[in-house]
Design a binder for these strands. Structure first.
Lengths: 236, 236
DNA sequence: TGGAACAGAATTGTATACAATTTCTCCGCA
DNA sequence: TGCGGAGAAATTGTATACAATTCTGTTCCA
């Protein structure tokens, strides 16, 4: 579990390599299946292989990169996007964020009030952005992300938070796919979000957990029906 | 999430360093709070710092070691054991294994039959081992571990399995504490295990998930009431 | 033509030297 | 005695050289 939360250690080189690569993978500029070569990355970013190695190992542990099933050496490549993977991943997120929502709904009413206000505001923005003539996929993704992060941060303790931080980013690639491929279907998400907010507002742990899980599981189903191996894309 | 499942790559040096250190930490021979020095480990195990670094990074990501100061260098030390940490960790395991149990309970009856037989056998062994005059803590831990692993493997897909593999080992330190400190209270566990088996046997997803979660949450509560900062222990 | 084998290139694994940073120690001084 | 600081020791960060492994392309033989 990445206990390794966003390290404050900004200038650490493995850190910047990690973020650069992760960004490229998540945005699809480094295509699923693409090979990653330590020396290339190192020379492109102007560092030696040592920090690159650290970054690669982390990306591997976090599932962005997989190792070709070779024997003695690893030969890493960008993890592919599959329907099954998306499904399982979203179900896992459903559990984690569901638990966080349950905990958030158990907070004293006073705390919940502020949270509910925030959530409502974000979801309204999300609604508007979804209805806009010219949709901004980037912004849509960010708003959805914020919505979920909001109640997770309110409910989760450090350990659950760390788990969330370890797992959730892996869903980012699929979430971006979601808003791209299902741009017209986002009204459903708005409604599901409202259900979550209501449950937290009324302080119903069971309902909150249920609502979050439903939201994610439905998303998994919707995405699964349109993801057909979004093949090679972009290069670097 | 350690997508990095137990690598078949046996002879890989980072792998053996990782396992050696992990074992020492989990068994308490490397005390919570103890500093870990790359060069020491390297010379003790007869390798250079490079593979040690890999192992250390992984142990860090998996939560076995933490970085003490917020400076520019890491200075890793063995993660301490606390009541709060145990509580949160067990609740997380409750979610993960609960989900796995739910999925296991949804398998066709034919598959479930074999599973139920296995689970019953293990739990009976566990029962006997718990009642033995001279308890073998090591064996007790292993049996409990097997019991849970059994239904998890039956129900979980690769991603959930990977998540489980990433999180569960971190609970090992607390589980061993549990069987040591609560040796006389293990009958309760046997009973809770029986409830799990019944739910899977009857193919009730809700009941199975609930039973697993109850088992872990109760364990968290029981452990929490006796864990009092099990201070420094052992050295290397 | 097809395939096996070999040579060379490409790539990762490991060790080690050096640089940067942190911690420790001990001495001076009030 | 206690505090502060300078310099030494310890420790981690980075780069790089070399070793081990895997991949690629070509040649040679059936």
């Amino acid at each position: 579990m990445s206990t390794t939360r966003a390290k404050a250690r900004k200038n650490a080189r493995p850190e910047v390599v990690y973020h650069k690569l992760r960004e490229l993978i998540v945005r699809g500029q480094l295509a699923p299946g693409a090979r990653i070569v330590e020396t290339d990355v190192a020379s492109r970013l102007g560092v030696s292989r040592t920090p690159v190695r650290g970054a690669l190992q982390r990306l591997n542990q976090e599932g962005y990169i997989v190792e070709s099933p070779r024997l003695q050496q690893s030969r890493p490549m960008v993890a592919p996007l599959t329907r099954e993977d998306a499904h399982e991943l979203f179900f896992i997120v459903a559990e984690i964020e569901g638990l966080a929502a349950r905990l958030a709904a158990m907070k004293p009413a006073k705390e919940r009030d502020g949270l509910v206000k925030q959530l409502t505001a974000i979801n309204d923005d999300f609604h508007r952005a979804a209805q806009a003539r010219r949709q901004d996929h980037n912004k849509l993704w960010e708003l959805d992300e914020n919505f979920h992060r909001c109640y997770v941060e309110a409910g989760a303790g450090p350990r659950l938070m760390a788990l969330h931080d370890a797992v959730k980013p892996q869903a980012e690639r699929y979430e971006r796919l979601y808003v791209s491929l299902l741009a017209r279907d986002l009204a459903t998400s708005v409604t599901e979000h409202r259900t979550i907010v209501r449950a937290i507002k009324s302080g119903s742990p069971d309902a909150a957990q249920e609502a979050v899980q439903t939201n994610w599981r439905n998303a998994a189903a919707r995405l699964g029906s349109v993801i057909e191996s979004v093949g090679e894309r972009g290069s670097w």
